[in-house]
Design a protein around this nucleic acid. Structure first.
Length: 268
DNA sequence: ATGCCCTATGATATAGGA
């Protein structure tokens, strides 16, 4: 059960640099007014995170960033407790534990903001790292669930996996690529086996709820997109969903991220 | 118009993104 609020809007957004996206981020928070926003690809240190400007809009901030790459955060107007940085048992890459996960409890809901490794290409060390990382995520979800089975839980973020062939604009172009391989999709299936469900958002336009469009080659106007930003919720969360959508408006205009926010409304 | 890649960095290129 959601403890503190009957209604709660949660969202996730890979902003591709929180500094470069700051004007759009602040405007979007002010208009969409999520209770909780999970961010990925901050590309800044915690010291450089625009904490004060986000606070002025009523959000508490827990960020986890080390600089040039990666970085995740949770912004909340519904409380921000029991913050955990990194997954327990998170694998290292090239000797470093990268800032790709942060967990917190907001309004009685356990939430994780995750930026799953890209994988580069099948067979690359980064691809094995991606699968190892997903296994650690699975263990984290299982442990969190075991710790308090009555507490709703959701994982939100950039999973860098298209769950089905329909989640990319042309599957024929992906035969040599990551994001669609069986081991990656099996990792998602394992996550579902822990009791989570893929909360599929509705698109605001066209037939597929893509969340990412490359900056190049007119991908957005052509709707050459991918659904890789996902919300995985347990039965309590999935059962409380009253609406879910991709805010593709945020992919338009001046200086957009290449990802759009995914918004999920919960109503018990 | 949704419009032909973007970001941060010991920066005059490069790594990474997906």
């Amino acid at each position: 059960m959601l403890c503190e609020a009957a209604r709660m809007r949660i969202a996730t957004w890979n902003v591709n640099s929180v500094t470069a996206r700051l004007p759009r981020l602040l405007a979007w928070l002010d208009s969409a007014r999520p209770d909780v926003l999970c961010l990925q690809e901050l590309k800044c240190t915690d010291d450089a995170f625009p904490t004060e400007q986000v606070r002025e809009l009523g959000y508490e901030v827990a960020s986890h960033g080390t600089g040039r790459w990666n970085g995740v955060a949770i912004l909340s107007k519904a409380g921000l407790d029991d913050v955990v940085r990194d997954l327990p048992g998170q694998p290292a890459y090239d000797g470093a534990i990268e800032p790709r996960a942060i967990g917190a409890t907001c309004g009685g809901v356990r939430l994780w903001s995750v930026y799953v490794p890209n994988g580069r290409e099948p067979g690359h060390a980064h691809y094995d790292y991606k699968l190892d990382w997903l296994a650690a995520l699975n263990d984290t979800v299982a442990a969190d669930t075991a710790a308090d089975p009555s507490r709703p839980l959701a994982v939100l973020g950039d999973f860098n996996i298209a769950p089905t062939d329909d989640d990319v604009w042309d599957i024929a172009l992906f035969t040599e690529s990551t994001h669609i391989t069986e081991p990656e999709r099996k990792a998602l299936a394992a996550l579902r086996d822990t009791g989570l469900a893929d909360v599929v958002p509705r698109p605001l336009k066209y037939d597929h709820p893509y969340t990412y469009w490359d900056y190049r080659q007119l991908a957005f106007p052509k709707n050459n997109g991918m659904r890789i930003d996902l919300v995985y919720g347990d039965a309590a969360v999935a059962g409380a969903v009253s609406d879910a959508y991709v805010d593709r408006e945020e992919r338009k205009g001046k200086s957009p991220s290449d990802h759009a926010p995914v918004v999920v409304d919960l109503d018990r």
